[in-house]
Amino acid sequence: MVTTTALEAELLALAGSVPDPELPVLTLAELGVLRGVQLTAPGRVEVLLTPTYTGCPAIEAMSADIERVLHDHGIPEVEVRTVLSPPWTTDAITAEGRRKLAEFGIAPPRPTGPAGGPVAVDLTLRCPHCGSTDTTLLSRFSSTACKALRRCESCREPFDHFKEL
């Protein structure tokens, strides 16, 4: 592990404050996709970013937003590098991130437990609108790759579920 300087910590916090382009209630830090910020030369910074899904198109917008924020903070050269390993998991979403998701009407992911193996999809999930656990799966794939579509049988509202990965 490379030692982090005060400036790097400051830049990491700044990059981490960028909102997710598809779920703007979450910051990149809360989503858990920032892997580090390193000062490679004076005025030159490398940012390590990991995608939520392999084909996630938001990664390009995230990179552009990080570059802009760090440029505005006086860093002329910013390189955002994508890293795949270790793979991102929904366990990387912070407690605050989960709270915000639920508040936004998206059921947060459940803990995935030990890595490997298919994720169980038949456990109950709480409706983010009324809190009922009587919900059913409508589709494993929803508005984005990271979500499934469910319906609450109590309040009859459909809702997104950030599915476990």
Partner: peptide, 16 residues
């Protein structure tokens, strides 16, 4: 790295 990342998504494809 790609295989470790993608296999979790593919588990959903197979389940579907």
């Amino acid at each position: 790295p790609l295989a470790g990342k993608a296999v979790k998504e593919v588990a959903y494809h197979r389940d579907h």
